[in-house]
């Protein structure tokens, strides 16, 4: 438990608050203390911890993969290259399974999504008190180190995918074709408004379900870690160890689901209308 003077709900709240930088209602710029203060900052505020950790992990991912890619040997691969190639092979297989046609963007996109989400989710396995405590020691009041438990993160990726869905839909089918797909299915033409409503809901539900699925899973997992951390410390390991082991599965599974759905959505967008 973080600090003996905190109540349980304060402890939980503290762990679930991002380090938000923005403009206070009184006009000064600074770090929000508590989620209410962060809310008062409105839209133009930044969650520094989410941004920092995710960019750090993204650079970590790209650094190692780039390192493997700068001098790829055609001979027997070893160590890092072997691992990187294993991941690539896996992604490439998934893409080939679900994506019809050829597109130079899909595979690197899937790779980025998968590895980045795995790395961010893995932050969940670091004991919940370590990093926030460390932050407090050096004067950072809040630190939420799992970027995927911040809806900003998951929605950002989902919107990125959504833009690509729109882009490919319009590129492949043309604006008219895309509109036709939305308006003339699944019912005949004279029910166009109903069709439009139905198809637009299903279109918009794609990024939202992507984002919320990942966010919900990771948020709930984090929450359970926090709750386990409130047990008497002699008992914690009896729950945290099994949960952490189970969580390894969730970490990879959620990344895989996000990636696979991205591929499927983009494959649908890339297809000529049926």
């Amino acid at each position: 438990m973080s600090g003996e003077n905190l109540t349980s709900s304060e402890y939980i709240k503290h762990h679930l608050t991002n380090l938000t930088y923005g403009q206070h209602p009184d006009g000064s710029w600074g770090i929000a203390h508590g989620s209410e203060a962060a809310k008062e900052m409105g839209f133009w505020a930044l969650n520094i911890d989410t941004l920092g950790v995710s960019v750090l992990l993204g650079c970590f991912f790209l650094y190692f993969f780039k390192k493997a890619a700068t001098s790829p040997t055609v001979g027997v691969p070893s160590g890092l290259q072997n691992f990187v190639e294993m991941v690539l092979e896996f992604i490439d297989g998934s893409v080939k399974d679900s994506f019809n046609g050829h597109n130079a963007l899909i595979a690197p996109l899937s790779l980025t999504i998968f590895v980045w989400i795995v790395l961010m989710n893995t932050m969940d396995l670091i004991p919940v008190d370590y990093i926030p405590h460390l932050g407090q020691m050096i004067g950072i009041p809040y630190l939420k180190i799992v970027p995927t438990t911040d809806p900003n993160m998951t929605f950002a990726m989902a919107f990125g995918v959504f833009f690509l869905i729109l882009f490919f839909s319009i590129k492949v089918k043309g604006p008219g074709g895309f509109f036709a797909e939305l308006a003339f299915h699944p019912f005949p033409k004279y029910l166009m408004p109903f069709n439009l409503f139905l198809e637009i809901v299903s279109l918009i539900s794609k990024p939202i379900s992507l984002a919320l699925r990942l966010f919900g899973n990771m948020y709930a997992g984090e929450m359970i870690f926090i709750l386990i951390a409130m047990l008497p410390f002699g008992l914690q390991w009896t729950l945290s160890v099994p949960w952490a082991i189970f969580h390894i599965l969730i970490v990879i599974l959620q990344a895989f689901i996000f990636m696979t759905l991205t591929i499927v959505y983009l494959s649908m967008a890339n297809e000529e209308s049926h």
Partner: peptide
């Protein structure tokens, strides 16, 4: 867990 400009940055 507020939606803010982090979304754009991300």
């Amino acid at each position: 867990m507020n939606i803010n400009a982090t979304l754009i940055g991300q």
